[in-house]
Design a protein around this nucleic acid. Sequence first.
DNA 1: CGATTGTAGCAGCTTGCAGGCAACATATGG
DNA 2: CCATATGTTGCCTGCAAGCTGCTACAATCG
Lengths: 119, 119
Amino acid sequence: MSKFGDRIRELRKAKGYSLRQLAPLVGVGFSYLSKVENDKLDFEGTASESLIHRLADVLDADEEELLLLAHHVPKRIADRILEQPEVFRALATLNSDQFQRVAEQVAKYTLRSETRTPK
Amino acid sequence: MSKFGDRIRELRKAKGYSLRQLAPLVGVGFSYLSKVENDKLDFEGTASESLIHRLADVLDADEEELLLLAHHVPKRIADRILEQPEVFRALATLNSDQFQRVAEQVAKYTLRSETRTPK
DNA sequence: CGATTGTAGCAGCTTGCAGGCAACATATGG
DNA sequence: CCATATGTTGCCTGCAAGCTGCTACAATCG
């Protein structure tokens, strides 16, 4: 269940790259990329944030999505947490129902701004 | 402006420990502790999460508070983010007003459960 | 004064992360 | 069948984080 690796492979194929083609574009060896895609890294863990950044760039992907799949907290979110720790600490304490309601409120605000720029 | 170091010193003094007394209790050298308190570490960065954990333990402090002061995202919060990424991504996108309103809703829920256990 | 405390510099050392390399297997097309 | 492109895997290495462990020195205080 390595969603991250699967997603990378998906994106790579969508661009028609082989491992050996993509590797130099993101500045690593092709064998390392294979391990990343199959979650077979020597150590316990995932690709570095900087590699994910380059991958997102070259593959025209959503960097935050990739970071999250690789179990990294994106900086944009981390910064907010460090600015307003109490809010996030409280948020993490809520039960599912309460959290769900907060999520709905957040969704409302988000929808509103998306509605202003329709296709 | 090293809030973290200052807080550690505060907690240590409150317990009446000297650097040389506290150091063995958390398993590091006293000179290293001094550097931690003064934010004068050889490298760019902060104390490790494991050291912060032991400090919180020995000093009877709030581990999450210390982690946040040291610019680490506590696991409990990180886990929530990885479970519900979309919510947190949206949350980080809100402007100050919107965020403020969400914060108030969260605070309400939190207050309610605190009210059930009065002093 | 002498003992304790904190500050600071510097030379290591250990571990884990990040990635390279070479050999191998597999597949595909002519 | 061969040649070439592709993906997989094991081992090996470089480097930086996060310390240790001195040493020396200044400040404080009883």
